[in-house]
Design a binder for these strands. Structure first.
Lengths: 148, 148
DNA sequence: TTACATGTAATAATATAAGTTACAACTATC
DNA sequence: GATAGTTGTAACTTATATTATTACATGTAA
């Protein structure tokens, strides 16, 4: 099981918008970098737009960042692309037997524990900005040049 | 997206083994409490057995805990039932375009960030033992009695 | 030998993800 | 205003994973 790659693609898109700031970032252009279909990009872009992270308009080619990169965290992207619902990272079997002590209490006992673990993960995502991601992309790019 | 309920069921099973310590916990008995099919229980039980958490033997009815409850954490169960592979909680789009600066570096940049978030979640699970779960189950049971 | 349990393979039903096609709605420009 | 090119979106396909279920081999105790 893995969380949908929409999240990774969302990060890819925002990074690309920054690095291609001079040019026009159409869905086709972005799809070429991500290596997927332009429609997939437009769907994800729509989510990023709803979350106020990018500006896109029908008929007009190219998307732009709606906020400073230092004010967009991975958690913002994660929430924007809707990959995991609140308190639902961990699936729980429904309708356990109410005639059993464990069955009638397990959900209430497990729920908070699962929420806490999910929040710990999300907090970690909230500590990283897209600005840092872009800086690291450029750093890795330069490292590779030196290696050649 | 949700992590397979095998994890929740695994916790349910271990708790039930403790609370039903006096009786015989056959796969049918457990399935009745979880509200699922006995085969599902046997499959999960097999994973718990491989991880050294329970003792079960072919032909002999009933399973038993293989360790003290205070020495089994939620993380142990999570790993036992194999719901998330190492470093694979977050899906990443494969083969992004190597001709693009972002495309050829995004995986190496994102990877460690995703791993860190996953580890934060897993660390949280490692802080809770099944013993605590059982205590909370009993506590909630008594609270409900008072409410009646 | 019988009754009953676990182990496991095979299958079906369901849900979600990701890719794709098709087309409506919109904008700029000629 | 007609055209070319873009975004927005619905519909469909394919692939994969989960969960439930059936069937049966294997193992144990009485």
């Amino acid at each position: 099981m893995s969380i949908s790659s929409r999240f990774a693609v969302g990060i890819h898109i925002l990074s690309l918008l920054e690095i291609n700031k001079g040019g026009v970032s159409s869905s086709e252009y972005i799809a070429n970098s991500v290596n997927t279909n332009p429609v997939v990009i437009r769907k994800i872009m729509g989510m990023l737009k709803n979350a106020g992270l990018v500006n896109v308009r029908p008929g007009i080619a190219g998307a732009e960042l709606a906020r400073d990169l230092s004010e967009i965290t991975l958690l913002d992207v994660y929430k924007a692309v809707n990959v995991v619902q609140e308190k639902e990272l961990f699936g729980v079997h429904d309708s356990p037997n109410p005639a059993c002590l464990v069955g009638r209490n397990i959900q209430n006992t497990i729920g908070p524990l699962f929420s806490e673990a999910q929040l710990a993960m999300e907090k970690s995502l909230g500590n990283v900005t897209i600005e840092e991601v872009v800086k690291d992309l450029l750093k890795k790019e330069n490292q590779n040049k030196v290696d050649d």
